[in-house]
Design a protein around this nucleic acid. Sequence first.
RNA 1: GUGCCUAUAGUUUAAUGGUAGAACAAUUGGUUGUGGUCCAAUUAGCGAGAGUUCGAUUCUCUCUAGGCACC
Length: 369
Amino acid sequence: MFKITKILKSGSRRGVLKTAHGSLSTPFFLPDATRGFIKLTDNEAVARTRTGALVVNTFHLYLQPGLKIIERAGGLHKFMDWSGPLLSDSGGFQIFSLIHKNSRLGKITDDKVIFHSPLDGSQHELTPEKSIQIQFTLGTDMMVCLDDCPPNDFSRPDLEKAVTRTIVWAKRCKTEYLKQLKKRKLSDAARPLLFAVIQGGAEIDLRSRCAEELVKIGFDGYSFGARPVDKEGKFLGEVLQATADFIPASALRFALGVGTPEDIYRCANMGWDMFDCVIPTREGRHGKLFFLKKFPKYENVNINNAKFAADFRPINKNSRLPELRRNSRAYLHHLFRLNEPLGHKLASLNNLEFYQNFIEDLSKIKDKK
RNA sequence: GUGCCUAUAGUUUAAUGGUAGAACAAUUGGUUGUGGUCCAAUUAGCGAGAGUUCGAUUCUCUCUAGGCACC
């Protein structure tokens, strides 16, 4: 399913990952299509940016439209008309963020997490088993274990608690995963990949212990849990580096939530293979556009700035997407001033293509002879 | 023509005889397992003139502009 083909002196890895919905070469970046779509755009256009795979979220899709609809549609790929690989996040991060922000929104116990839907306030509960069952119902190609995701500034005892719970829950996820494989008679080639999440905040020894226990259980890949930046937005490079080193070389390394282009570049050199982040699409929606210069240099411009009002150059003359070559920056500026969804779409597409190009350039780096 | 009412930032509007506050707009930042509507900072104002007063955006008068009513 995953094969490493090369490890550079820098630590950067090259590999191939085969899923039931196609192959991906690593390293790769997955944009977040949390609710089954990349906001304000469409999957046909996203595919033209050569984006290979998308992340969807168990929590959001479970609440809306609900599993019955997706089951009746014939699975999530059909429902959202995406033929490439899909990765489903467990929903842990979202639920735990909600609860840590406002403890009235839910409750975490050793057995499960109880939460109130932000949509209608209705009460739901999620167990490790249920999270896996939902992900099988979605029919995604890569799945993530439900984890206890603490904020990075949690106290040491609280972080220890989260690590212990994450390990116990990962074990339960794995058991349920094997059960589902058997029940659905999925062959090795057709089976989804299962990722565990390594927690421990900024405490390296906790990350180490968490990784060690998870590796004993055995997963296709291991993810970096919690936010990869601290409260001030400073990238936790040392923690990412140490955590990567705790993961077996043969397994996929998934840097959840990473990140800016420079953070992705750094993480690739640490041996991380996969990245997902809201930056290209969220910043796109808010008018921040990425343009590649000479790799790894790039510029990040705010199309809302007054200087673009009469800038009739193309949005991106080097784009493979005709709509980004044809439309001017002045027009995009105009669309943003009027908060027009077409502007958000063009900006999102520009940034997705940028991220794709950035990762491709990164993948082309070779060891000097 | 007469009477009454109104005039505060680009716009819509608060408050006040002693430093005039907000929203939207504008200008510029921010966003790391999603915030489509988010967050932050900045710029910007008492229609004109005279009077009363230690001090007037506030009170008085004149003018100007707009609205309403009557002839």
